[in-house]
Design a binder for these strands. Structure first.
Length: 852
RNA sequence: GCGAGAGUGGCGGAAUUGGUAGACGCGCCAGAUUUAGGAUCUGGUGUCUUGUGGCGUGGGGGUUCGAGUCCCCCCUCUCGCACCA
């Protein structure tokens, strides 16, 4: 055996072994319990980055650990393969998006395999495969039948550069999240999924998702934004019209002094008086030129204009002037707000600006506010005043009383409002799933009949990046006969948002080749839910909420039984690295810096802050280079050891070196002892041997098992194996029983195998085993080996450590107290004082409480 | 502003139920080996005093025999949401 650890000599060998033996193929014909482990699948950009390595290394530990524990593990991998980068590449290099994507997949597959991940590659698919997206089209047709997919005209965020619609969450600081171009408003006919129908279920089930991080659940609840309130109708003075408002504060109804409408409100036309028309139209024009993002930015100056009309407060008959205000949004609530300046800060500022009256209707207890002296809105609790029959009622109570009073008179009702909007899924793009719809002049919108599916994405397109989607110009694709009347018709040229593909891929992994339907229900019901899902926190709302929604839709379509896709969710932290900057050359890649100097100009390099690895800051480490230098096992080990999975990981080259050295250390631990432990084959009699090393071995097995199983504390698991390795190096090899030493060394190899599988397989073989390390299963600790006859206890005096004593493990308290007081340094601190009491914590410490 | 999380040596991080703060690793220091360097092995490493002692987990209070951990107040940072009516 070579006495030096050379990763390239072992890694390819074992990757080949796993492939040939189909070691990670999932199987449903088994008595074993199922375990479905999934990491978020990657976009095939062509190169893996350290974020992938970390995500997949974490998942692989869990997959291998569960397999060793005897579970039937499903651990699939595939590609989120539709999307804009493929089209951008086509524009830049003239390569077809399909060709580009499949070539990237081939190259990334090679890179992933080099990491030694335990995937069942037989289940691999890409979402751009016809055999995947055809089923998505069928799901759409079913949703359309159920009224869950519908079309409507809406104002959308539009990116001129990408010539496409962006969801609100795809707009960052008023710019496109992909190309950073300024986003504008545009009116378009769009397909929507009725996610709002599931708003309550999506919200309520967040309380049952015990295996999800609280942070993610909070973000989802926040996103759904359910609020209870009251709808109130205000009659418009002198007309039959009514303005409907939504408010969460019906208790402040009598404090309303004016009304604010969204400038887009449909009633505006009828409300504007001739005197005000010029002013109002100018205002509407001004607001329409601001984009939606600015409208909701919070920095926006509050502006408004009087319409000339008045409405009537249904409770006290007061007349309120109707304003338009730029901060009122048409798509939240009813697009109209009753303004209560005394008790709402925003209304307060607006009222002061336009010199509108302020009327206090809630008095906090022990205070008497007046409208004139108020410096900010009073939003707290109190008793009602100036509210007629409701005076003196605590405001919380008044909310319901006023609402039911209005309800009885047909002027209002208790309602629920959501922030969540329906999901717009139309994208004016080529590289996506075609939406299976046909537009006929006679029959209108006609879904493509099931028998005509799939609507295949044509490959003969020219992608120039100009003039919108290539599909919209592709005559062969567009031209079709109406399936209903046979007249010439036109195909929908929009494709789905790529979040649609990632909303059900986890279910398709259960039956990737199934050719009869989107899902083989038997297989899907066997494997779902995903027992553990692992991915980045950046998907906390969009992807995870859409996937939850789709699961409920699939359930209601009778395709699966489960209601939730992911039982447990782990959101891993980002991979960060220090940035480096040269005055002349800007941000520098790590390899452009030597001894703190820029390699191009020799100037000293300034260290920037530690940030998420990104190409723009050049603080990246290329996994391929890392693996070439140290091997996959070192890359994995560092990713797992440097921080717990959910926290950000700070990249540190010296830390990587340390991990590489540790692997060399275990290599030598086997190599240097191979001859010696050859005499220790018989491990039957180990139970009778009292040995510190044996105790340490079993303590380590226990610790690693508990750290990995459910807790995912891989860093501490690895640390404890390091301790065991230190103990192996530290023991006296002339005295130690060879069988004990063998057990310790074998345990190190077995315990580390989920983390660094290649080196462990190799060492396991060299220890004399054939057929792979998985055959042996996960080691089990011997509880008896953990028992010690003598324990060391800390002795405290008044909570401060003053000495240590060694006593028999089964000593009773009287004996412990005597031994503690007899300890010389303890005795010194106790001397001359009165012992009040002595607290004995078994196995831990003794605390002598003294006074005087 | 609202919501969530975090703050521990020179650094990454341990401490699972309130019970020896700093496991493990990096870095640094010393020794062994080596022609030398590297690699490897061994030991040391919170801090102030160096006396068998004091101080120490962002700051201040509290509960307790005992607090990094529980409670109250404050500071800082990170993430998410935000004219949401």
């Amino acid at each position: 055996m070579e006495n030096q650890y050379i990763p390239e000599n072992v890694e390819a060998k074992w990757q080949k072994f796993w492939a040939q033996n189909q070691s990670f193929k999932a199987d449903t014909q088994t008595e074993k319990q199922k375990y479905y482990l999934l990491e978020m699948f990657p976009y095939p950009s062509g190169r893996i980055h350290m974020g992938h390595v970390r995500n997949y290394a974490i998942g692989d530990v869990v997959a291998r650990f569960k397999r060793l524990q005897g579970f039937n593990v499903l651990h699939p991998m595939g590609w989120d393969a539709f999307g804009m980068p493929a089209e951008n590449a086509a524009i830049e290099h003239g390569t077809h998006p399909g060709k580009w994507t499949y070539e990237n997949i081939d190259s990334m597959r090679v890179q992933l395999k080099r990491i030694g991940l335990s995937y069942d590659w037989s289940r691999e698919f890409a979402t751009c495969d016809l055999d995947y997206y055809r089923w998505e089209q069928l799901i759409f047709l079913k949703m359309y039948e159920q009224g869950l997919a519908y079309k409507k005209t809406s104002h959308v965020n539009w990116c001129e550069d990408c010539q496409t619609v962006l969801a609100n969450e795809q707009v960052e600081d008023g710019c496109c999240w992909r190309c950073h171009n300024q986003v504008v408003q545009k009116e378009l006919d769009q397909w929507f999924f009725r996610i709002t129908k599931y708003a309550d279920e999506l919200l309520d089930e967040t309380w049952n998702l015990k295996g999800w991080p609280e942070k993610v659940l909070a973000m989802q609840r926040n996103w759904i934004g359910k609020s209870y309130g009251c709808e109130i109708e205000f009659a418009v003075k002198g007309t039959e019209g009514k303005v409907k408002v939504f408010t969460t504060r019906p208790d402040t109804l009598c404090g309303a002094t004016f009304m604010s409408l969204a400038p887009e409100h449909p009633l505006v036309k009828t409300l504007v008086t001739d005197d005000q028309r010029t002013e109002v139209e100018a205002f509407i024009d001004e607001v329409s030129r601001q984009d939606k993002i600015d409208r909701t930015s919070g920095e926006l100056e509050k502006k408004g204009v009087f319409t000339g009309s008045y409405c009537i407060n249904p409770l006290n008959g007061e007349e309120l002037p109707i304003f338009l205000a730029n901060f009122v949004l048409m798509d939240y609530g009813t697009g109209a707000v009753m303004a209560v300046p005394a008790h709402d800060q925003r209304d307060f500022e607006f009222a002061r600006k336009y010199h509108l009256p302020v009327k206090v209707v809630i008095q906090p207890e022990g205070d008497s506010l007046t409208a004139d002296t108020l410096e900010e809105a009073m939003t707290g609790a109190g008793l009602l005043v100036n509210s007629g029959q409701f005076d003196g009622v605590p405001n919380e109570e008044a909310k319901e009383k006023i609402a039911s009073f209005l309800d009885e008179r047909g002027q209002g009702r208790l309602t629920v409002n959501y922030r969540l909007r329906d999901w717009g899924v139309s994208r004016q793009r080529y590289w996506g799933t075609p939406i299976p719809v046909i537009y006929c002049q006679h029959c209108g919108t006609v879904p493509v009949p099931e028998k005509d599916l799939p609507v295949q994405l044509p490959m003969d397109v020219e992608i120039t990046g100009e003039g919108g989607s290539p599909l919209a110009r592709h005559q062969d694709f567009l031209t079709v006969d109406c399936p209903t009347c046979g007249a010439p018709a036109r195909r929908e040229s929009d494709t789905f948002d790529t979040f649609v593909e990632s909303s059900w891929y986890f279910a398709r992994y259960a039956c990737p080749q199934y050719a009869e339907a989107p899902l083989d229900s038997q297989e899907a019901n066997y494997w779902l839910s995903v027992d553990q899902y692992i991915g980045g926190i950046e998907h906390a709302v969009m992807h995870l909420l859409y996937a939850r929604f789709f699961t409920k839709v699939l359930r209601d379509l009778g395709l699966v039984d489960v209601s939730e896709p992911f039982t447990n969710l782990l959101t891993q932290g980002m991979v960060c690295k220090e940035t480096q900057r040269c005055d002349e050359h800007g941000w520098l890649y790590p390899e452009q810096v030597e001894d703190g100097k820029c390699t191009r100009c020799g100037q000293s390099v300034a260290l920037g802050r530690t940030e998420k690895m990104s190409k723009s800051k050049k603080n990246v480490v290329d996994p391929n280079q890392l693996i070439a230098k140290y091997g996959a096992d070192t890359a994995r080990l560092f990713s797992l050891f440097a921080a717990p999975p959910e926290k950000d990981l700070e990249w540190n080259e010296q830390g990587v070196e340390g991990c590489y050295r540790f692997l060399g250390r275990i290599w030598r631990a086997v190599h240097d002892n191979l001859e010696l432990i050859g005499k220790g084959q018989n491990q039957d009699s180990l139970k009778d041997i009292s040995s510190e090393l044996r105790r340490k071995t079993h303590q380590t097995i226990k610790k690693v098992t508990e750290d990995v199983d459910g807790r995912f504390h891989f860093n501490t698991a690895i640390a404890s194996v390091m301790e065991l390795v230190n103990a192996i190096y530290g023991c006296d090899r002339n005295k130690e029983n060879p069988a004990v030493l063998r057990e310790a060394i074998e345990s190190v190899v077995r315990l580390l195998s989920p983390f660094v599988p290649h080196i462990c397989e190799e060492l396991w073989q060299r220890l004399g085993y054939e057929g792979g390390i998985e055959a042996q299963g996960w080691p089990v600790w011997d509880a008896e080996a953990l028992v010690t006859s003598e324990v060391e206890l800390v002795v405290q005096v008044n909570g401060k450590v003053r000495g240590k004593i060694k006593v028999a493990a089964d000593s009773d308290n009287t004996l412990l107290e005597q031994a503690a007081l007899a300890e010389p340094n303890v005795a010194r601190f106790v001397e001359g004082k009165q012992v009040r009491k002595i607290i004995c914590v078994p196995g831990r410490l003794i605390n002598v409480v003294v006074s005087g």
